[in-house]
Amino acid sequence: MALPAYQPADALQEGQQYLTFSAGGETFALGILHIKEIIEYSRVTRVPMMPGFIVGVLNLRGRVVPVIDLAARLGREASQVHKRSCIVIVEIDDAEDGQRRDLGLLVDGVSAVLEIPEVEPPPSFGARVRTDFIRGMGKLDEHFVVILEPACVLSVEEMAQLARLADQRPALPQLPDAR
């Protein structure tokens, strides 16, 4: 079911090879050293009362891994799951306890592993993505691709904060005539 994990062929420096994928109709890139594996979309268990960008949890060989809808996290519309949908398993450092955690990213499809030799600094404004989410702009032929900064996009701290706000919304009244 799971595709084989991408193994860097030889000792590659971070910043040289990137995985590109599409989310919300745009292409993004993520440094390959953060990526553990790419799996097909399989059943994700929804966690009620969580903000929209948290899709739910997934069983990854006996471990419970949260799955984030990348498009929704970047402020786009929630992804629709279709045949090419993938879950990219990334490893992130939890800033608070210093432990490494796995996190699934729901994307519309993965494209390629590319070498991006030229990386420009992020524009100070104008990008449709929060500036602190951008590590840099990778130059591909004639156009640029947004290279995401996983420490910010996937900050457990910030996402947990958002989840807390979502959870504190008053629950819906339970009377039938109220709905």
């Binding site: 966690v47 948290i54 608070e96 996402m159 947990a160 959870d167």
Partner: peptide, 21 residues
Amino acid sequence: GRLFAAASCFSGATILGSGAV
């Protein structure tokens, strides 16, 4: 995990025989 620290109505997750969570 900490991501769901706010989900006070869930104490954890488990894996069912079918493999679902």
